[in-house]
Design a protein around this nucleic acid. Structure first.
Lengths: 115, 115
DNA sequence: CTTTATACATAGATAATCAATGTATAATAA
DNA sequence: TTATTATACATTGATTATCTATGTATAAAG
């Protein structure tokens, strides 16, 4: 689909926080979930995700913890904080507000402009 | 409302192109329209708008033309091109696709997670 | 020992907002 | 004339973000 950088940027925070609201998760699986959720439209590279996770952690919206999986591979599990849950609501409000502005504009333009 | 930079960035292109689809317009008035459309939530500074307009022109999505207004002040009117109209559709598709991904995620999280 | 999948991390190029600043015209007020 | 406010366009510089490329490491399959 080739989404623009800016749209990816605008969605990364609510997307990741939203996934973590379902339970703690680690980077590699978050990428798979994003792909699944979007029906294959969004394919994040790992080099994209980790800097975002580190930023969210720095902002106090998530915490991280190293854990061993069944396989013996080490995984860094991220969990959402209370601050992170509040941020989800804020992100959701902002997104919906912008969505309504765009919808209003699109509805204006879909009407024939004579009358 | 204090929208994030990234959300402003993601909306700037569809917002401006959408406004210009209603007819040619100039920078100062586009800012007023954005404010009106958003119910006062979005207040763009002129230093934000003009670089975006220049970028859109460089991309061939809009054209510009100097005109005198009734007052005698000179205004640069921007008009959307055919390429610009096509870009609107693309922007709209991308926005809606992302919107549906987020909505799916939010609907998952609004359900109680025991069952 | 090679390849593939999993798993995390950083560096550097590129691109974008946005506050601050500058130029200029017209109207209003002293 | 001078000052202020609203209109109108433009650029600079600080900051912030993606995202490709690259690196490290473990485990399984062959």
């Amino acid at each position: 689909m080739d989404f623009s950088k800016s749209l990816i940027a605008a969605s990364s925070k609510p997307l990741i926080l939203g996934i973590l609201q379902q339970g703690p998760n680690y980077g590699y699986d978050i990428i798979q979930q994003i792909k699944t959720l979007s029906g294959g439209q969004l394919e994040w590279a790992d080099g994209m995700l980790y800097p975002v996770l580190h930023r969210l952690e720095k902002e106090g919206l998530v915490t991280s913890q190293w854990n061993q999986s069944d396989n013996g591979r080490h995984r860094k599990y991220y969990a959402i904080t209370e601050l992170g849950k509040a941020a989800i609501h804020q992100e959701q409000e902002h997104w919906l507000a912008m969505h309504h502005v765009l919808q209003k504009l699109w509805s204006l333009n879909s009407k024939t402009s004579h009358g």
